[in-house]
């Protein structure tokens, strides 16, 4: 469902000059699987995911999302994607219901569809209790649930998670991890970035090791381990990247 071909992105930075954040990467991600982008800070994970979700335009290369080119029909691509990152926040002065409804409308859903979907999501996530209080009053775990509901209000076939557990406590992390698994089980195509090796091992069906904007290896976790002849991803990473 996702095919990235030779994707590249260069930024012009005042201090550092031109920065090749993503440098010709290609990968594929199918429905019903969790694909992980694993790499340290500054590897180019966020930039890659932003190109897939069309908030950044690729400098060169293409990506097809469910058969649609991100550069040619970005609006069409956006409707197919659900997006959640560790830094996405909420509108504090709105209630969960108001906020999720707003996004439903932005995704062009009808009022009755939004209502049905909200009822389903809110009971699935156990949110009915706090759905009508202002977001700013919620605990971090509750906030996370609101973010989750927001990201899937339009029931997208593809989910993009950018370091979704960064900065979260154990309970909220667990909620997110369970949610990611559920997305896969529902047959969605899930792409997910992390710098935490153990998280990747635990969650991903396939991974790509990304460093300095390039993909160094990809495949199932077991494959990568057997190819490098070590027993954990950390060592595999060092070996592959060669530092």
């Amino acid at each position: 469902m996702i095919q990235a071909k030779d994707l590249s992105k260069t930024f012009k930075d005042k201090k550092r000059g031109t920065v090749k954040a993503v440098d010709g990467i290609s990968f594929e991600c199918k429905a019903g699987e969790i694909f992980g982008l694993l790499g340290p800070n500054g590897a180019g994970k966020t930039t890659t995911l932003r190109m897939l979700s069309t908030s950044l335009k690729p400098t060169s290369g293409t990506a097809m999302i469910n058969g649609v080119d991100v550069a040619e029909e970005p609006e069409k691509v956006r409707g197919q994607i659900g997006f959640l990152s560790g830094n996405t926040g909420l509108y504090g002065r709105l209630t969960a219901r108001e906020m999720v409804t707003y996004f439903g409308k932005l995704y062009g859903m009808s009022a009755s569809d939004i209502k049905l979907r909200i009822d389903k999501l809110f009971s699935m996530l156990d949110m009915q209790e706090f759905a009508d209080g202002r977001n700013e009053k919620l605990s971090s775990g509750m906030k996370q649930k609101v973010s989750i509901a927001r990201s899937v209000i339009h029931d997208p076939p593809i989910m993009v998670f950018d370091e979704p557990t960064t900065g979260l406590d154990v309970m909220s992390s667990r909620t997110i991890v369970q949610f990611i698994r559920k997305c896969r089980d529902d047959g969605k195509c899930v792409i997910f970035s992390t710098h935490i090796m153990s998280e990747a091992t635990r969650l991903c069906d396939r991974i790509a090791i990304i460093h300095k904007g390039k993909i160094f290896a990809d495949g199932a976790v077991d494959e990568i381990l057997s190819r490098t002849g070590v027993d954990n991803l950390e060592d595999a990473f060092i070996k592959i990247v060669g530092e």
Binding site: R50, T54, E75, R78, G79, F83, S85, N87, G89, L90
Partner: peptide, 14 residues
Amino acid sequence: ERGTLETLLVSPAS
């Protein structure tokens, strides 16, 4: 500041 901008940018609204 809230980190909501990106959620808007990935929505179909222009």
